[in-house]
Amino acid sequence: MKLLTLNFLTCAIKTCKTSPSSFPLHPQDSELEIVEADINVLFLRNMLPRLMWNELRLIVNELGLPSLPETAPDASSLLETKLQVPEGDTTGLNIEKIEVPSQVAKDLHRVLLETCIREGKLVCGNCGHEYKVMEGVANFLLPGHLV
């Protein structure tokens, strides 16, 4: 399960919905893996305003990953312009400007979309309910009395 998903996931139990501590769920005994994916700057820019940055930093610290900057990056910092000689041009006279993902975008992509929780459990900060994660699939089925 991607860390991006964890930034949106809350406890499924009805009585926890009203409590602010039901978000974020805290990963425990987790086994992480890196799943390579293509970077998509448009998607990152779309998601930036919706991320809860402080909670993301908290989770990243809990997982023992290198910590993130204090504030969320700006949407404009995701792209940087680079001067490049077009392919097949040997004269060196034509130089074109292309936009490439910046290091900020690459780091964000690494954390949000490539870092995945493979095994472990997610614990609600309010009720303490544990959701098992097996092979990247979290079990959110609730027993009848908790629905």
């Binding site: 990247g136 979290a138 079990n139 609730l142």
Partner: peptide, 13 residues
């Protein structure tokens, strides 16, 4: 992927 019953709600903020 999530193993979840949609009839129990959608557990996202």
């Amino acid at each position: 992927l999530f193993l979840a019953d949609a009839g129990q709600g959608v557990p996202f903020r």
